[in-house]
């Protein structure tokens, strides 16, 4: 029983940082995207021949707006329900796709800051929600461990 709780504590400590790792990964991707605009443009040309013309920048703007709004609402809902945060990496993938789409439509320079702000907001909230959830779990696990210790002393 003690081992199980200790394992749970270790997992909670590890998982409470997942949000921060995702945020760090996104910042690294953004720095790379910012300094490698020309590579994205070259990639966009190759895509254009394969997939056809990209959607207009205004459509991608609309998608980014809807995605940011729904992601924030989803995180708040999860925080209210107190459910376990899962799939912290997915927002990073979606945001990377936005960089690629803007790159393909040739409007990445103008929209870089919008994607960066959206990413920091969503992943900042996500990491806070993740940290908050696992801190609560950690507290419960430590209390349980203390209780077991007390029972052990009494017996």
């Amino acid at each position: 029983m003690r081992q199980k709780i200790q394992e749970q504590i270790r997992l909670c400590e590890q998982r409470s940082n997942y949000g921060l790792w995702a945020l760090a990964l996104f910042v690294a991707i953004s720095i790379a995207a910012n300094s490698q605009f020309h590579l994205l443009a070259e990639l966009a040309l190759k895509w254009r021949t394969l997939l056809g013309p990209p959607p207009p920048a205004n459509w991608i703007n609309g998608a980014l707006f809807i995605y940011s709004f729904s992601a924030v609402i989803q995180i708040f809902t999860r925080m209210m329900q107190g459910t376990e945060p899962r799939g912290t990496i997915f927002p990073v993938i979606y945001l990377l796709l936005f960089y690629l789409f803007y790159g393909a439509s040739g409007a990445q320079i103008e929209h870089f800051w919008a994607v960066l702000a959206a990413g920091i907001t969503i992943l900042g909230l996500e990491s806070y929600s993740c940290w908050s959830y696992y801190q609560t779990e950690l507290r419960s696990a430590r209390e349980e461990l203390d209780r077991l210790d007390r029972l052990g002393k009494l017996s």
């Binding site: 924030v72 929209h111 702000a117 806070y128």
Partner: peptide
């Protein structure tokens, strides 16, 4: 602090994203 931080992050971030998108659309 625990109550205000998520509200502040969500509102600040979302308003900034909206403003940046709006600015880029107006400029276009």
């Amino acid at each position: 602090t625990r109550t205000v931080i998520p509200v502040a992050i969500a509102v600040t971030g979302f308003v900034i994203v909206c403003c940046l998108l709006l600015y880029s659309m107006i400029r276009e």
